[in-house]
Nucleic acid binder design. Structure first.
Length: 557
RNA sequence: CUGCCCGUAGCUCAACUGGAUAGAGCACCAGCCUUCUAAGCUGGGGGUUACAGGUUCGAUUCCUGUCGGGCAGGCCA
């Protein structure tokens, strides 16, 4: 099943048939639109306007000819030509009623499609080095990454959630030195405290556990401390495992799981970094200058050429990055999506240039990047800047504990990734309609409550006569429900979960307005059953949509 | 100085990737508040889509320039 509008497609088919007579072979994109103005009907087509130029005919005249050739359909109540040559379609109530059984039959599959069947996508996100707790920016990435994975899976893609990190670089050396200093009884501010060090309280916790000889286990590694404060290698390994475990707890609180962890260091030990450099050299895209090896990234649109191999013999950070993405490609991921903070946008041109220069057949524009801006946290009207845990920033776990997983996810997904977001803790805790998560979840809980009050089995509503659904609120809700599948498809295609968030808010708004206007459990049996069937369809769309966002749908609130 | 992103109601944000009269929510104003779940409900005012050009039947959307904001510009990641 294509993941598209249940009724639009049928209208498009009718127009397509008419066009075979009116303008055979003419190139027309049959995108059917939903007019904003209800007076313009349920759907409209601009096919006549598109054809006006190539056929050199008056668009309104063409529209008339299309209408003459349009096959009869029980869906259509009437048609009209309007404006410059729009063809407007007014559908019968029965056409709209037909979507209710469709949605109820599809159930959890409503909004899913198979456009991505047989394709593999790798989504890399969070990818925090194990040097401290995850901050709210990581939270935005985790929410975005997980939602995008859900959206792709809903389109039939085989999805891999990957976390990439480095356990051997300069930052990790700093971490080990910081823990060692704490293990030797030093504190930030002491004369011997290392200049470049992590000062958060959590460093002291790691040192204490290290000295106690404890064991730690994370999703991807395990280690037992030697307890010897002079054993820097043991400290390093223990600290990495400890912080990876801490991050696992942060992610668990946020209900995010990864399928795979990938180590930057493995790119060196496997020889992939060397092999990548060799490919670039062989391709003639490098040159030596000032004792360093440079890559001609300017051949691929970068501002200036970049150093690959420093004069001290080590590689700059983007070389393993290129090697990593060649590995992604070779692992069969035809699509790779990287979710990163917008402060990393400089790496995009470099990595893509390296991949093209390597000449291994990777598509131009690989990988995709989704960049997001910073998140600030407001509480009690003031910006929160300090967390006890991290020392200098608010952590993801703080935010989840202050509010809830559902609120944090929903809020962080509610805006376009490239706009700065201010998280309002008080709003997230509010139990009223000002709080968007509450508003959407409450719509679901209300439906569940109505069914509980009714006491019947939803399955007995199958085949219900829906002719009683004539109120404006009911038709508006029906219309909204049909938009769900294409909203999901658009959110996936455009890496834009906020489209789904906005949709759910609007859908909940339509439902609440209806609920406030009409009583469902009325004495008239046919009306009651029709309303319950529609409410059940709304429930399905809300549950499915929230699930894609990683937000729960409580039955009681 | 250069590159990327952004600029829409007083505020926070949408706008089906080029469609018809640019939409919601806060806030503001006016009524209502006996209900399957209650922390409210219904309606209303509010706009030169930063600015100036261009492309065409048609532009918030695409192109050019200007102004303003964010982020980058290291043999750091």
């Amino acid at each position: 099943m294509p993941n598209t509008h249940p009724l639009k497609d049928q209208i498009a088919l009718l127009i397509g048939e008419a066009l075979e007579t009116v303008a055979p072979g003419a190139p027309v994109s049959l995108d059917i639109e939903r007019p904003k103005n209800p007076a313009h009907g349920d759907f409209s087509s601009n096919a006549a306007m598109q054809l006006a130029r190539p056929l050199k005919k008056n668009p309104r005249e063409l529209a008339q000819r299309i209408l003459t050739e349009l096959p009869a359909s029980p869906l259509i109540a009437r048609t009209e030509i309007a404006g410059a040559g729009f063809i407007n379609f007014h559908l019968t109530p029965a056409a709209w009623h037909g979507v209710v059984p469709q949605i109820r039959a599809a159930g959890g599959a409503y909004g899913r499609g198979n456009a991505g069947a047989g394709h593999k996508v790798l989504v890399e996100f969070v990818s925090a080095n194990p040097t401290g707790p995850l901050h709210v920016g990581h939270g935005r990435q985790a929410a975005l990454g997980d939602a995008i994975c859900n959206l792709y899976a809903a389109q039939g893609w085989e999805v891999c959630r990957e976390f990439y990190y480095n356990d051997a670089g300069v930052q990790i050396a700093t971490l080990a030195a910081s823990v060692q200093a704490r293990a030797k009884g030093l504190q930030p501010g002491d004369a011997d405290w290392p200049e470049a060090a992590y000062n958060g309280d959590y460093i002291a916790d790691i040192a204490a556990d290290f000295l106690a000889g404890k064991s730690v286990r994370s999703d991807d590694r395990a280690f037992t401390a030697s307890g010897d404060a002079d054993d820097l290698d043991s400290i390093r390994q223990f600290a990495v495992a400890y912080l990876r475990h801490e991050q696992d707890l942060d992610l668990q609180a946020f209900a995010v799981r990864f399928d795979h962890y990938y180590l930057e260091s493995s790119l060196y030990t496997s020889g992939r970094v060397e092999a990548t450099v060799q490919k670039l050299v062989d391709a003639g895209k490098t040159y030596a200058q000032d004792g360093a090896l440079w890559l001609r990234t300017t051949d691929y649109g970068d501002d200036k050429d970049r150093v690959m191999k420093k004069s001290d013999g080590t590689y700059t950070y983007f070389v393993p990055d290129v090697a990593y993405h060649i590995a992604k490609w070779e692992r069969g991921y035809e699509r790779a999506i990287n979710i990163q903070g917008s402060d990393h946008h400089g790496t995009i041109a470099r990595v893509r240039a390296g991949l093209q220069a390597a000449g291994v057949g990777i598509a131009e524009g690989y990988p995709d990047y989704l960049l997001h801006t910073m998140v600030r946290v407001m509480r009690g009207g003031e910006e929160v800047k300090i967390s006890k845990r991290a020392g200098s920033y608010v952590t993801l776990r703080d935010l989840v504990e202050w509010t809830s997983k559902d609120a944090v996810r929903f809020f962080l997904l509610s805006r376009k990734p490239d706009t700065e977001y201010i998280f309002d803790v008080d709003l997230a805790l509010a139990k009223n309609n000002d709080n968007p998560v509450y508003y959407v979840q409450y719509a679901h809980a209300r439906i569940c409550r109505v069914f509980e009050e009714w006491g019947g089995l939803p399955a007995t509503l199958d085949g219900a006569d829906l002719a009683a659904l004539t109120a404006a609120h009911e038709l508006a809700l029906l219309r909204r429900l049909t938009e769900y599948p294409e909203t999901v498809a658009a959110a996936a295609r455009e890496l834009a979960p906020h489209l789904l968030v906005h949709y759910l808010q609007t859908l909940a708004g339509d439902f609440h307005a209806w609920y406030n206007a009409e009583k469902f459990l009325v004495d008239h049996e046919a009306t009651k059953r029709a309303r319950l069937a529609l409410a059940d369809a709304a429930r399905i769309a809300i549950v499915n949509g929230l699930a894609l966002l990683g937000v729960s749908a409580p039955e009681k609130m």
